[in-house]
Design a protein around this nucleic acid. Structure first.
Ligand SMILES: [Mn+2]
Ligand SMILES: [Mn+2]
Ligand SMILES: [Zn+2]
Ligand SMILES: [Zn+2]
Lengths: 134, 134
DNA sequence: TATTTTATTTAAAACCATTCTAATCTACTT
DNA sequence: AAGTAGATTAGAATGGTTTTAAATAAAATA
């Protein structure tokens, strides 16, 4: 993607094409799917000779997410949960009150799973069904 | 569960039946399934008039987990991930290197899902397939 | 273009869940 | 009862993330 295409993309999403956003957008939206953390992106940025603050990386990742350019992988929440149900099962996560409700393992079927990468083995499957009010 | 049954349970799992562990075990293993965080458990403990430190709650939750009495709900990891793939899809999480690999949404089927609680609506489904070496 | 307005960036501090440290205390063994 | 290994604790440290507030840059206006 050229610099001017990146600029257009940002403008189309209501974001000023600053030097920092252009740098991050051109790293992120190169056509290949990517999964990044703020730290991993900071390292890529550093490797490419650009200097920008970690706060800007966080700001930008959240702005790109709000604009629909990225999706945050949410997981269960930012605190560690412990479960007295030690059998394999899954969860509803009620985001209105942060409560978990069990879903029996038998409710979920995995079909056509891509083959696991060579030398790897499946260690567990965790399904989170997110609930909101309404 | 009586105090002596709780004591037995702890001993059976190689844990000394201390006052603190007995208190936490009797709150946790009352026969009803529970999902707790260190903070939520601290509040229950406090409400029941027992005094013990947050460090002990963390220690005990991890010891109970190591003993197989609890299961930790792991989520994706302790850092926030952002994904350039904004379509609905799922992930392998390779725990040996903390890398994510996409799994198409079509690979996962949900069947016999318990009915969503009244007034709630499903907002998203996230599946994490955990991989280890071997 | 020069000026003004508004949004953005940044370093540093704050935040918050969790872990660590090291001193004290307790359960078990002899 | 004494000794020892293990457990608890307050408080400090850690690490990812957010906030603050001052400096800078982009857009709008003249
Ligand atoms: Mn966030
Ligand atoms: Mn843990
Ligand atoms: Zn559960
Ligand atoms: Zn993905």
């Amino acid at each position: 993607m050229t610099a001017s295409q990146t600029t257009d993309l940002l403008r189309q999403h209501g974001l000023r094409p600053t030097r920092q956003r252009i740098a991050l957008a051109s790293l992120l939206f190169d056509g290949h799917p990517r999964h990044v953390t703020a730290e991993s992106l900071k390292e890529q940025v550093k490797a490419s000779g650009i200097k920008l603050s970690l706060a800007t990386i966080y700001n930008t990742l959240h702005q790109f997410t709000a604009a629909g350019l990225l999706k945050e992988i949410k997981g269960i929440s930012d605190v560690t949960w412990f479960d007295t149900n030690i059998n394999s099962h899954h969860h509803f996560l009620d985001t209105s009150n942060n409560h978990l409700i069990d879903i029996p393992a038998s409710s979920i079927t995995i079909t056509n799973l891509p083959k696991t990468p060579a030398g790897k083995v499946i260690n567990g499957v965790e399904v989170i069904v997110r609930l909101t009010d309404g």
